[in-house]
């Protein structure tokens, strides 16, 4: 998919573990893992808001558009 999730990059920058983030944003580890591995098909604004709040970043820091190479 053309939308890349850079959650792991932001987590590394903020030196935050998946467990810690899961507690802060009130999401299950499996759902965060789905998001981190790029398997997610959609993200709610509320989830994005809480992740941005926890990681102190902008949505653009987490999501990136990279066109598919055909």
């Amino acid at each position: 998919m053309a939308i890349i999730v850079n959650l792991d990059v932001m987590m590394a920058k903020r030196k935050m573990s998946l467990n810690e983030l899961s507690e802060k944003v009130d999401l299950t580890l499996s759902n965060l893992s789905i998001l981190k591995t790029g398997k997610a098909k959609a993200i709610r604004f509320s989830t994005l808001e809480s992740i941005c709040k926890a990681l102190d970043c902008q949505p653009a820091d987490i999501l990136e558009y990279r066109p598919d190479i055909e």
């Binding site: 998001l35 997610a40 098909k41 959609a42 993200i43």
Partner: peptide, 8 residues
């Protein structure tokens, strides 16, 4: 349902 399951 799959889409719903993969919405976080």
């Amino acid at each position: 349902q799959e889409e719903n399951d993969l919405t976080v």
